[in-house]
Design a protein around this nucleic acid. Structure first.
Lengths: 142, 142
DNA sequence: AAATTACCTACAGTGGGTGTAGCTTTATGC
DNA sequence: GCATAAAGCTACACCCACTGTAGGTAATTT
């Protein structure tokens, strides 16, 4: 039986995060000691590992909920899980493309900065005037 | 003189976001009509364009605050702005590296899925067992 | 038995906004 | 000159995915 702290260590999760997952129904309510402390078994360790691994791969908690659900029903078709993964892959590829454009732009900004006064600073100038950009980088966030 | 709505349109910002920027002190308090509506001039349009452009390049609001401050003091050394941009470039490159690892992993997951039952699903299997991963992808988020 | 460590709940805060409710102001058409 | 509709106003709640804190209790170690 694992305490919440040792489960946290084993999975590289913060204790609060585990309690948070419980709160939002992603992790089950575990058993408790007489004194009211949580105790976990193998099943919970596996489930949390799954969640953390999926998070590392960039899946949202919503997607992870779906994946867990599929994982809990081994008879179901695999195609749903596959669709979720494909969706995720697509997102990752979109982000990659955007980040590559950003890198190009930032590199150019940095290279062109001659180190004088801010009035001549290319970094600030480029930020002031989008038309100086060589690449498109429209979307914000994510 | 621009209304908040036309400023929003010109800069591709939501009206609420402009008010939010004002609230957090990133945009100045503009003049008002007798009836209490905000009215903006060229200076505010330029400032908001700067902010939006920097956001598109992935700068945090904190970094943008610093950049605006530098931009307001044309005599200051450019090196600070340069340092902020370099920091940003580094972050972008780190994210790129991670995302590339994720793409590899997701691609592999999707390729190996044969389309049967979830009990045989490679997607779920890979998520269950990190040791099957070919790449490291430790950090979560961003 | 004391001290330390780990745990508990409840709540606030993070970043960067977005959405909503219920009102007032401004612009347009007749 | 007035009705109506569009756009504005404030204030607040909500989003994601956590993280941090305060004030207290349980479990472990010495």
């Amino acid at each position: 039986m694992l305490t919440i702290g040792s489960l946290a260590k084993k999975t590289g999760t913060k204790v609060q995060t585990i309690r948070y997952y419980e709160q939002i129904g992603l992790m089950p309510e575990p058993g408790r000691t007489e004194g009211g402390q949580r105790r976990y078994g193998e099943a919970e360790l596996d489930r949390l590992s799954f969640v953390r691994h999926a998070r590392q791969l960039g899946f949202s908690l919503g997607a992870i909920r779906e994946l867990l659900d599929l994982s809990d029903h081994p008879g179901k078709s695999c195609s749903e899980a596959d669709a979720i993964a494909r969706r995720q892959l697509k997102q990752v590829e979109q982000r990659l493309a955007r980040l590559e454009a950003l890198r190009t732009e930032l590199k150019r900004m940095v290279l062109e900065c001659s180190g004088g006064q801010t009035s001549d600073c290319r970094v600030l100038e480029v930020l002031r005037d989008h038309s100086e950009c060589l690449t498109e980088h429209e979307e914000i966030g994510a």
